[in-house]
Amino acid sequence: MAPRQSFAGRWVPGEMALLFVLMATLPLWIGPVGLYQYLGIEIAIWMIYGLGYNLLLGYSGLPSFGHGAFFGIGAYAFGLFQLRVFESLWLGMVCAVVAAAVAGAFVACFLSHRRGIYFALLTIAFGQVFWFVSIKWHAVTGGEDGLLNIPRPALELGVISPALSTNADFFYFVLFVLAVVTVLLWRLVHSPFGKVLQAIRQNEERARFVGYNVWLFKWAAFTLSAAIAGLAGSLFSMAQQSAYPDVMSLHASGIIVMMTLIGGGFVSFWGPVIGVAVYFVARDVLGTLTETWLLWFGLVFVLAVIFKPEGIAGAWQEFTGAKGRHALARRAMAGLISAGRK
């Protein structure tokens, strides 16, 4: 076991404090470095999404290539709640999380006895089904246009209800949600549940013979990860004030995988956080230079998978001499491709 940590260290370790400080001060420095406020909102939302996604990919070793579905379901559920029921921030978010969790729980019933490539293919299939439904079910989803003019409700805090209409205010709300999710996930991955998930990733069979109901753990991890994607989706529909099918496409689902891997989700809790930041900054910086920025980013991704599957976090650990899980990353990567083992 790791050396005993202080109480504060167990809730908010140094890296997390750094993330919070960087993000909280973002409105002060993002303008001067040549970027813009809204980018901070996008980054924070996708960090939530990425952290939840890495619970599956990095910690449980379960490659979901259709996770956009749950992000999208969260976005639609939030939008529909505001448009069809009534305007409420908290209830809308609860509705989004529940909808994504229910969809995730349902899908997980078909996935949890699988792993490796079979798991991955099934997630793609389910992802495509949800994406298709979002395009075709005009009466509910608004078809290819999606839901438009979704209101961004005020922050109901009982006595006061400040508006979140400006991006500056909304950014701090998203940051608050990110902080809560980060702390809780940090606790989760170090809890018995998190440790069992990692044990299952390392050796599913042994976990079973030690007495763990592997199916149930995988099911729970998938459902939880889908719920977090739904939470991120609800924030996204607030940010965009719309919800549309694009975020559910295979392409969009691939991007969260790419972010998580480039950042180093296999070797570090912080992998998706790094990957998300790098992706969005690359999009905006490279995007001003060339329209084909995603081609170059994709090439970097290909090279990373071949030469550095530990991602940026892994390279950093190597640089600082911290002992990482490099062998694991390589094996996990090989596993994603070849895991037909039984």
């Binding site: 076991m1 790791a2 005993r4 940590q5 167990r10 809780l184 606790r187 989760l188 170090h190 809890s191 018995p192 549940f193 998190g194 440790k195 069992v196 990692q198 044990a199 390392q202 976990a207 030690v210 007495g211 763990y212 753990f217 729970a220 899980r325 062998a327 694991l328």
Partner: peptide
């Protein structure tokens, strides 16, 4: 990837009994 100690800890019956505890640090 787990230490020798973690291999044993994860197999202890009372750790198994709280396998769905998501908040307390196991280490």
């Amino acid at each position: 990837e787990y230490s020798a100690l973690e291999n044993i800890v994860i197999a202890l019956p009372d750790v198994r009994a709280r396998g769905f505890n998501m908040i307390d640090s196991l280490s």
